[in-house]
């Protein structure tokens, strides 16, 4: 019997994105460059995170006409971001036929308490998490794909590394527990018990886990992959660099051959200027994005 919008179809698309690079783009031209470079998907945005950070103000869903024009310009999947908790933006993106919706901390949150109930949608959702408990809460709400919540728009990978390591550590801790301890762990984590038990049994999240936030070089992408990410999102790192096509191509190659230092050395040559980058300690506490959502 024909079925649509099932969780297996949603995580199935995430499976197909593995070993790939998802690139932020703000125009159809950039989307074509991303596709030419070998991106597995593009994220259609009005402004890249570096500009959102610089310009301030309320950051919202991209205008529908922009999303539609980017969708028309490429054959690969198109993702778009909605604000945390803004289920109407998500409804609009779904009606536009967006392939993946990112409920993203990069945009200004619309709800301080609740994330979107993602099971209600046919479109799959990706959400960010800083640690295992947060990842399991999002998966409980229906997220089909997780990513780290690295500080977008900084060109600084340190936060994404922290999140990936934290999730790994959380998984290892659950695996070491006996059955009786798992309920208590679920209570302390504030995460759904069934998912806590799944992780303890399988040693991994029930959905794919990608890296995002601050990835600016082929080495950054390979670092996240070696730490256990199954794909990488690259935001400002590409189109805020000196030679976007070259850098994008290099990051794609580095993501495939993340375990091969000779390839990584080769693709890292002559890439031109990387984006300048920001030290996390220079960002005022209230402007850190990872603290958005819970």
């Amino acid at each position: 019997m024909k079925e649509v919008g099932t969780i297996e179809l949603k995580t199935g698309l995430a499976e197909m994105l593995k070993g790939g690079v998802i690139m932020d783009v703000v125009t159809p031209d950039q989307a074509r460059i991303a596709e030419d470079a070998g991106a597995v998907a593009v994220m259609a945005l009005e402004r890249v995170p570096a500009d959102i950070r610089a310009q301030g103000g309320v950051a919202r869903m991209s205008p529908p006409e922009l999303v539609a024009s980017i969708k028309e310009s490429v054959s690969i999947p198109v993702m778009a971001k909605c604000r945390i908790g803004h289920f109407v933006e998500a409804q609009i993106l779904e009606s536009l036929g967006v392939d993946f919706i990112d409920e993203s901390e990069v945009l200004t949150p619309a709800d301080e308490s609740n994330h979107i109930w993602k099971h209600d949608f046919k479109s799959p959702f990706v959400c960010g998490a800083t640690n295992l408990a947060e990842a399991l809460r999002r998966i409980g709400e229906g997220a089909a794909l997780m990513r780290t919540k690295g500080e977008a728009g900084t060109g600084n990978v340190v936060e994404a590394v922290r999140h990936m390591r934290s999730i790994r550590k959380g998984i290892a801790e659950l695996q070491a527990m006996d059955q009786a301890s798992l309920m208590s762990a679920a209570k302390h984590m504030g995460a759904p018990f069934t998912l806590v038990r799944y992780v303890a049994e399988h040693g991994k999240l029930p959905v794919p886990n990608f890296a995002a936030g601050g990835i600016a070089t082929p080495a950054d992408a390979a670092l996240m992959m070696q730490l256990g990410a199954e794909s990488v999102f690259v935001g400002s790192g590409i189109f805020k660099s000196g030679d976007p096509l070259k850098r994008a191509t290099a990051i794609v190659k580095a993501t495939t051959h993340f375990q091969d230092p000779a390839v990584l050395a080769e693709v890292s040559k002559n890439l031109g200027e990387a984006m300048v980058g920001i030290n996390i300690s220079d960002i005022p506490q209230g402007e850190l994005l990872a603290g958005r959502g819970w």
Partner: peptide, 10 residues
């Protein structure tokens, strides 16, 4: 079509 049109079938 796009992902919202993806489906399962025997």
């Amino acid at each position: 079509g796009s992902q919202v049109d993806s489906f399962t079938e025997n």
